[in-house]
Simulated scan of single mutants.
Amino acid sequence: MFLFFKSLSRSVHEEQQEPEFKNNIELDGHCTSLTVWRKSLIASCNGFTVIDTNGNLAYRVDNYMGHPEEVVLMDGSGKSLLTLRRRKKLTTVDSWLVYEGDVDEECGRDKLSKRPIYSVKKQMSILQAKRNVLAHVYREASNKRYAYAVEGSYAHRSCKVVDESRRVVAEIKRKEATIVGISFGVEVFVLTVQPGFDPGFAMALVLLLDQMFS
């Protein structure tokens, strides 16, 4: 199944002819384009499989069922990169903390960075909802000024991450294609990341959107 998906991934990227970003960050380098498959490589788990343009496994998530309190993003070899933890507060707002590192399951000891590198909060404001704002990203948990906003519709796989200057740094696009009789739906989509923005963190935002809006 994974080898079959790699061939589909190559076909998806081969069909992309020009970048879809128009007024974005202009930096040296190229955009990172990833094919995201909303399916774990482990049959008994929910998760994600992420393939790069060469058909290689870039990221994977296969460590949860349902709506967990913690989600771990791993690289292709299974090394934990980021740990996402739901904030345990008496509030109706879905909020998460993003840490570097993981948890040593054998010893039960926390190997995470002591402080979260980002916090992400689901947008509940009616005024912000009119702009299709899904979530705000803060550099520190206590920071009241957001660094990035996520806008669009995750259900339709049409989202963009913008910075404070309204520049698009990452984008989720639904990929419509029919290859050897198979149509891509919302379970397979493309994540495009601009130079200067961490693709791993962009994928972490995808995981949080999936938890908040699936």
Rank of each mutant, 00 (worst) to 15 (best):
F48G: 08
A204M: 11
Y118W: 12
G185F: 06
T92R: 14
L97W: 01
C45D: 01
R109H: 04
S9F: 00
Y148C: 07
V36I: 12
I182P: 02
S158R: 12
Y64Q: 01
K88I: 00
E140C: 07
L84D: 06
L27F: 06
G29W: 14
K6L: 03
K39R: 06
V186Y: 05
H156A: 13
A58E: 04
Y99K: 11
L209S: 06
S44H: 09
L82G: 09
N56E: 15
A58C: 01
E20I: 10
R38F: 00
L84S: 05
L134Q: 06
H30P: 09
S125N: 07
D94I: 09
E176K: 11
R87K: 15
D163V: 10
P68A: 07
C107N: 12
S7I: 15
C31N: 13
L8A: 03
N23L: 12
I51Y: 00
V193P: 05
V137K: 02
S44F: 07
L127W: 07
Q128M: 14
L41F: 02
R139H: 05
L112W: 08
I117L: 14
E187Y: 04
R60K: 15
F189K: 03
G152D: 03
V12W: 01
V72I: 14
V188H: 04
S125M: 05
E69K: 11
K79W: 04
I42M: 09
P19G: 03
T92H: 10
Q128T: 09
R38M: 09
D210M: 06
K114W: 11
K6W: 00
S158E: 07
V161G: 01
F189G: 03
Y138R: 00
F189W: 05
A204P: 04
I51E: 03
T192K: 11
L41W: 01
V103M: 07
P19D: 06
R131M: 09
Q123A: 08
A141W: 10
R145W: 08
E70R: 15
L112H: 08
A135G: 14
E140I: 02
S158T: 07
A204L: 12
N63H: 00
K79D: 01
V150N: 09
W96S: 00
E18D: 11
V206C: 06
T178H: 09
T178G: 11
C107I: 04
E20K: 13
